[in-house]
Design a protein around this nucleic acid. Sequence first.
RNA 1: GGCGGCAUGGCCAAGUGGUUAAGGCAGAGGACUGCAAAUCCUUUAUCCCCGGUUCGAAUCCGGGUGCCGCCUCCA
Length: 487
Amino acid sequence: MTIKIYNTMNNRKEDFHPRTPGKVDMYVCGPTTYDLIHLGNARPLIVFDTVRRYFEYSGYQVTYVQNFTDIDDKIINRASEEGLNPLALAEKYIKEYYTDAGALGVRPATIHPKVSEHLSEIIAMIRMIIDNGYGYVVDGDVYFTVSRFGGYGKLSGRRLDDMMAGARIDVDERKEHPMDFALWKAAKPGEPSWDSPWGKGRPGWHIECSAMAVKYLGPGFDIHGGGFDLIFPHHENEIAQAEACAGTGPFARYWMHNGFITVNEEKMSKSLGNFFTVREILARYEPEVVRFYMLSTHYRSPLDFDDTKLDMNKKSLARLHNALDNIEALLSGVSFGPSEILMNAETERFNTVMEKAEQTFREAMDDDFNTALAMAGLFDLAREANAFGKAISGYPGKAFPLEVKEALEQAREKMYKLGEVLGLFEHRGTAAEDSGLVDKLMELVIEVRREARSRKDWAAADTIRDRLKDIGIILEDTPQGVRWKQK
RNA sequence: GGCGGCAUGGCCAAGUGGUUAAGGCAGAGGACUGCAAAUCCUUUAUCCCCGGUUCGAAUCCGGGUGCCGCCUCCA
């Protein structure tokens, strides 16, 4: 089974062949840490985390590199506003990053390199670029000679001439070509700076990713990812730098770009006032809901955030959790052993359907990580497990053959296994940190209500159930007994 | 101006030439229940418009309309 990836370089889906059999080396552009991460940052994190998880599920060994940009204009500006050292500010938001990304189920990368710790690699690369004739120095700044690099524009499908025609920025007169970009910026007073052959200064934005990707993955690594907006100029420039330095290509073999997030159908931006940090969203929705929602649309499509859609997806996700609850309730509430109940047909059918669901899931993911379609496999699994459970409920109080138990266990395992690829169901069962006190109270309440029901005192029974609901606890009367859950 | 993307049922969203156009949410009907909840079953689409290619198109081509993004170190 070959995984297909839509490669921005060719605008086509291509079969994925790793550089090294069994291994995947990927680099994803990480955040500039001048503030809490926002929804727009969260999408590539979740998308590429899922890509990574699927590769691992498929048996690959993944080296995942995601940088932190901790030297940048925005950091310097923010630091001076807050009277902080720029690197200390960046460090603070790197810590916050781990909190938010972790909440969203984004696993830490294999390596999280920082710009501030790779100055020597960056300077070496710039030197090589200059030596190879692709860079020039002006007053302590170093620029990349765009017109010299024949492949410039190959990723974004632009031609230098077209860009010139459309340029509407003030052009720095010292540059040889308006599209030449900075590799190194001479230090201004009060800014953090490092020594270099061209004097004190700091790296341009694009060079860091070229240098760190090459350092950790080498040239010609497998996958480079990031948001759509990075195609130009960021990734275009990364390619130019790395390939000008190496003297050959490719820098990366497959380029993946995730679509944008909008809020209420508008681009998310601070000026529009529809800017949301991950933390703000997580105050209102479970992280799992946010993650589920982000994966309910194909990663290359735009994704719109509003409460209606989040609410909708919260319910969808609940369906999956309910199915798991139902399976677990059966496993713990039904007895298994010698039995004269025959469920061979049902069990066989269930086992077949489970296999098919996983196959659906795998085929979908193989096809350019079609998470939306893959989820359908998960829902198929849920529906069939529920239906199977319903068949069991037709024989209350009876023991069931072990094959039935095995089928249920397998369904549970499969749900968790596929869910893990999407980063779902990872916190089930971990919420009970109340040292059993709540459990004991609930047992008491349920016992009282049970007595009321046996007296057919429906008013009392319903009052208990309604009041619990107000508190946020749902009571369910099932054939296997009373069940409760939060929220 | 240059480049690119998108338009599928009430809503979200898969589907890139071929049996009945996935899945979820919402709605309707039924089953189960003391009533619920959860669950199961049934049910809801002339695929933006007009041409064209083809035996056959949501899917390919041309044109139109509408929306969006990039070209500004915003993922």
